[in-house]
């Protein structure tokens, strides 16, 4: 009898211990993040959070798409708790395979719903606008629409990054809004017009500065970033298509919690931190991105999203990113 009672006591103790471990939110000491955002820009933010929360962050830096491929390959065995991505497409790929757990409402409440996945599988953190970077001394007439880019005056002058997620998100929006036939013809016309492909957005801006090309489709912050890293003024500026042209698309960076994580509360705390007002202000000033919170000012020297007349991509559309890639493969740009 006494033995039995002891046994009961021990198992009760064990049970509390086990539950304490599994729901261990109060005693989480480490969190693993796969970060598609470059260390250079995001590490200072993580540093602040580590000090505030006392939780150590193990950060695995890499390219958003490559990290997404890695998470897909790891499946339910992924060691990651959080995936922070440069672009919505990579997040969508994880979401499609049901590897995210939905983020409860009330978390990141300053971020408008339209910047998050419908099921709240992931939430937007910052925004970037698609622009064309160009050399003002070589391009006298800037394009008004993306169709203008197929005109002879831009022959052998234009550069794109077909492998880049932001470019693919933009192309997905073109397909959704104007149809696959239009998108295919547009790409073929670009090819005929001697479009040059590069591996990275920053490489395009550098190529414009060097004179290899004169105009390129990139995100708004690359002109600033390249000039910053070269430590000098460069011969490239941002240009915008006319209001509501698909060329001015808004794309978001975002964050999601892996379904396989057992550190959900700590992950939520970190997301709340990244989407809080002071931190969003810091993103704008330190990384030159747009905040998703409307009351926060645009980056220095840049027009607001409303002034650009930028379309916001319907994030559900990103589920079709695969057919976009099939199109790129079909026309031979991938």
């Amino acid at each position: 009898m006494r033995k039995l009672r002891n046994l009961g006591l021990v198992s009760a103790l064990l049970l509390t211990l086990v539950t304490a471990c599994s729901s261990s939110d109060t005693q989480v000491s480490e969190l693993t993040i796969y970060s598609g955002r470059a260390e250079e820009f995001i590490a200072p933010f993580f540093e602040i959070w580590q000090q505030q929360s006392g939780i150590k962050l193990n950060v695995r830096y890499g390219d958003s798409a490559e990290l997404a491929a890695q998470i897909l390959e790891e499946g339910k065995n992924s060691p990651a708790d959080i995936f922070l991505s440069q672009d919505a497409g990579s997040l969508g790929a994880i979401s499609n395979e049901q590897l995210f757990t939905p983020i409860p409402t009330g978390v990141a409440e300053l971020i408008p719903d339209r910047y998050s996945q419908a099921n709240r599988d992931w939430i937007g953190v910052t925004a970037r606008v698609r622009v064309f970077a160009y050399a003002p001394d070589r391009i006298s007439l800037t394009p008004k629409t993306i169709t203008d880019l197929t005109k002879p005056i831009y022959k052998n002058q234009l550069a794109i990054v077909p492998t880049n997620a932001s470019f693919q998100a933009f192309l997905t929006a073109v397909i959704e809004n104007k149809g696959r036939a239009f998108a295919k013809q547009w790409l073929l016309d670009l090819k005929k017009n001697g479009v040059k492909t590069y591996a990275k957005n920053s490489a395009i801006v550098e190529a414009i500065d060097k004179g290899e090309v004169s105009i390129g489709l990139v995100n708004h912050y690359y002109v600033w970033e390249v000039s910053e890293s070269l430590g000098r003024q460069i011969n490239a500026v941002n240009g915008y298509f006319e209001a509501n042209d698909l060329g001015n698309l808004i794309n978001v960076s975002g964050v999601g919690i892996l379904a396989s994580s057992n550190k959900r509360q700590a992950a939520i705390d970190l997301i709340n931190f990244l989407t809080s007002e002071p931190i969003q202000n810091k993103f704008v000033s330190d990384t030159h991105e747009y905040s998703l919170i409307q009351s926060i000012n645009p980056p220095q020297d840049l027009p607001s999203l409303a002034q650009v007349g930028a379309l916001s991509i319907d994030l559900e559309v990103l589920k079709n990113i695969k057919s976009t890639q099939d199109l790129l493969i079909e026309v031979g740009l991938l």
Binding site: E66, P162, K322
Partner: peptide, 9 residues
């Protein structure tokens, strides 16, 4: 590129 961009493993 297919791995990076397409998730089409």
């Amino acid at each position: 590129n297919m791995y990076r961009a397409s998730y089409d493993r």
